[in-house]
Design a protein around this nucleic acid. Sequence first.
DNA 1: GATGAATGAGGTTTCATTCAT
DNA 2: CATGAATGAAACCTCATTCAT
Lengths: 213, 213, 213, 213
Amino acid sequence: MNVDSVHRSLRERQRQERQELILQAAEQLFTEKGYYDISLDEIAKRVGIGTATIYSHFSSKEDLMVAAIFERALQRVALHIQELAAIQQNAVEKLTASFQFLISDDFFLRRAQLYYSLGNSPEAQKALNSRQSSISENARIFSETLAEVIEQGKIAGEFRQDIATSTMLKAFISIVRAQSVKDRLAGNYEDVSPAELLQVYISGIAVQATTTQ
Amino acid sequence: MNVDSVHRSLRERQRQERQELILQAAEQLFTEKGYYDISLDEIAKRVGIGTATIYSHFSSKEDLMVAAIFERALQRVALHIQELAAIQQNAVEKLTASFQFLISDDFFLRRAQLYYSLGNSPEAQKALNSRQSSISENARIFSETLAEVIEQGKIAGEFRQDIATSTMLKAFISIVRAQSVKDRLAGNYEDVSPAELLQVYISGIAVQATTTQ
Amino acid sequence: MNVDSVHRSLRERQRQERQELILQAAEQLFTEKGYYDISLDEIAKRVGIGTATIYSHFSSKEDLMVAAIFERALQRVALHIQELAAIQQNAVEKLTASFQFLISDDFFLRRAQLYYSLGNSPEAQKALNSRQSSISENARIFSETLAEVIEQGKIAGEFRQDIATSTMLKAFISIVRAQSVKDRLAGNYEDVSPAELLQVYISGIAVQATTTQ
Amino acid sequence: MNVDSVHRSLRERQRQERQELILQAAEQLFTEKGYYDISLDEIAKRVGIGTATIYSHFSSKEDLMVAAIFERALQRVALHIQELAAIQQNAVEKLTASFQFLISDDFFLRRAQLYYSLGNSPEAQKALNSRQSSISENARIFSETLAEVIEQGKIAGEFRQDIATSTMLKAFISIVRAQSVKDRLAGNYEDVSPAELLQVYISGIAVQATTTQ
DNA sequence: GATGAATGAGGTTTCATTCAT
DNA sequence: CATGAATGAAACCTCATTCAT
């Protein structure tokens, strides 16, 4: 390794660190105030860099948003779900642990709201697509990991076989969201026990034990 | 009815009609492109009026948004749910009919996304509050009607009694949303049968029949 | 007097009364908040009439302003100064009484500020000119009355003769203004006794008595 | 001095120069047409810059106004008055020189009018306060310097001791204004000799010599 | 004649993005 | 390479004035 490459790697590392700082600031400010209420100037000031510098790391505000909010968080979530699926014993326990993790992770807690604030404008779509490779890859890992858990549950006789795995997966994601995102519609019925909510789901997909009630 | 009141009602009616046009245009454009990507100029041009005219009907862009997107749609939803609850026979049928209606109504289909695009800015909150009376009233009707249906189901022995009504309600809303709002997370498992999704829910809350599998 | 003319005079009186209400509202609101911070809608609402009605009484906002603020108040001031000049005995007493009146009258107290807020725009000049006949007439009465008082004082030996009457008049007006209009420049020296201020002026124009100090 | 600081000072200087151009244009246009009749677009066009650039120098139109009209001019006035008070011999000469300067300086000649056009709106007050430190400081210097001159005049036996200094100061400022600001009220008596006007003031505050007339 | 509603014209302000340094 | 400053473009909003009723 010659002097040049040392310099380059030094620079490169500094650059990485700076990018990390930008992402963290963006993550916090976007989720705090919303995408449209935070300007790049504010983010740059928070990091302590010049506004133009952001553009040497991200191609646009939307790109930064997608990178900061989705790319990283989704990667974190996908990896953790994989770990949980490996550690836990049976399918119910795996889903339970996943549920517990997801409702406490701020990917669902705060980012879902921002996703919609991006809107359906062509620009937003373009920004999403440019980062798509990473995002869709992790989304794939996330959903496939859970789908596999469900499939295993079916094979093990834990879950019903007359309901499609995709349906069970979708229902699972939906209750995670229900628990994470506040919903004015629910009104006075807003506060629910996460455990109970999960129980509704598990009961809904579980093989019905012989019971009398 | 004297001349004055005729005049007044004529004017009043024209004004109402124009307001209706504004609301329709706003509804369409906001849901098409998103709140922040549509300017009042575009809405006015679509209606064929001056931009300033919008301000004689709505106090701000946010007020228009809330009125156009939430006030009307939520009222429509609340009323229809009430009707369905009155017509159908038992609780399962009532929830089934409600589910069918809700996943086909564009309140869930498109408006939920716009809600989040409003963000948490103080202005958005103020706009929501100024129309709050109508919105919260209809949200109350919506959630209470469904809660009553669930309660009746419990009494009739259709639903389990060891799960709180609020939990069941929240789970119900969540599957409606799951069916209505596209979710990139679900990835390849996106397409599900609404009936199956509902079945998961119903199974999850239903009293378990004595079965052997 | 036939029916028609009775009707006409009735209408005419109502019209006059309404105009009076407009002027009073404008007077109050303009002096309270300033010319540019009060809209015609606000004035109309205060009076309880339609906005367009104002235009059947005044040709423009500026015309209303000039009429409401200057025409009426200046007439009042001019008349009162004439009365005081007729009642009081000698020149010093006449100026003293005039001073007392002027510093308590809100023409100087509040309107002087509004005059400048009209600016030097061509429109403002035009508005002033259209009412000019009344305004300049009363300004003439005002200044000439005071000038005559000063002249009489000179003849009576009360005032110095080596100072031009116009100079004395201007100085008089200036101390009235000094007493009426708050001046940030004077800073901590703002609060002064009106009597003392007048005394400076009177001493400045009076024939110097033989004194030893 | 390294490269960085050279760069910074270069940029800094260019920025200063541009700000100076903005201030000059604002100063001229505001005094020409009035605060409300000049838009920032006009000022920017006059300078040859984009309208938004003004906002990188001043936080609002009102801030620019206060800075352009009051901050600079008042500083100039305060400093000059201090110099005159130091140079001239006795109190009468000091006041005379100050008077001569003030009636020729356009602070009184044109800016006093603009002050009132700002009105009493909360925004105007806020703008004034944000620059207050400089403005009130210079106003303090201005008034205290003149007050000291008067006090010295009293001690030296030039001025009467039975009139408060604050009264004398206020009267002084008032005749400066009288000479500087055109007043429609004075009508045909408008043109006066500055020297005579000053003489009225000086006579009014001077110790009366033993005279017979 | 009075009016409420409509609006053209224009204002201030913001901000993502670019560019000279 | 990083940057602070500049800015084009556009947004929201206001209001004096007009006009159909």
